[in-house]
């Protein structure tokens, strides 16, 4: 039996219309053999979490370039807990200051990939996270 493609949901949350980056990331992950579900722009944390749960993704990637990461991402983590779906790993991407990165990781974000992360490094991080997690 072939191994399953890694499933990734990529979301843009809130008032943030910059989606060129996520589209490129989506394309890179596809080319790395992953199933990529893209939600489109302007989603709420509730929508994103419900989508991630229904799609049963390995990774929930949230791209934020608006500066709202410290409100949006903790909310997503809380909602995942509420749904009893913390086994979905959250990866944040975008522009954020170092102290926020530390705080987000503290709260349960598995990885933060900043705007200058090369595509290969994104693919590698995701593969590494999924490989390290228990099979489900």
């Amino acid at each position: 039996m072939q191994t399953d493609p890694i499933r990734v949901l990529i979301a843009k949350v809130g008032l943030d219309g910059h989606d060129r980056g996520v589209k490129i990331v989506a394309r890179c992950l596809r080319d790395a053999g992953m199933d990529v579900i893209y939600t489109g722009l302007h989603r709420t944390p509730e929508q994103v979490v419900m989508a991630a749960v229904q799609e049963d993704v390995d990774i929930l990637g949230i791209s934020i370039l608006s500066g709202a990461h410290m409100t949006v991402i903790p909310k997503v983590l809380d909602l995942l807990k509420e749904q009893e779906a913390e086994d979905i790993m959250v990866v944040a991407g975008g522009v954020m200051p170092d102290e926020d990165i530390a705080a987000l990781k503290e709260q349960g974000v598995q990885e933060v990939l900043l705007q200058d992360t090369p595509p290969d490094a994104i693919v590698d991080s995701i593969r590494r996270l999924v490989a390290a997690r228990a099979p489900r």
Binding site: D31, M34, G40
Partner: peptide, 21 residues
């Protein structure tokens, strides 16, 4: 599914904004 990489982009949710959640 891409015949080359085995990956895919599943975009149907983009149109289903009003539903998700």
């Amino acid at each position: 599914t891409s015949p080359f990489s085995g990956g895919s982009i599943l975009g149907d949710r983009i149109r289903m904004n009003e539903l998700s959640g």
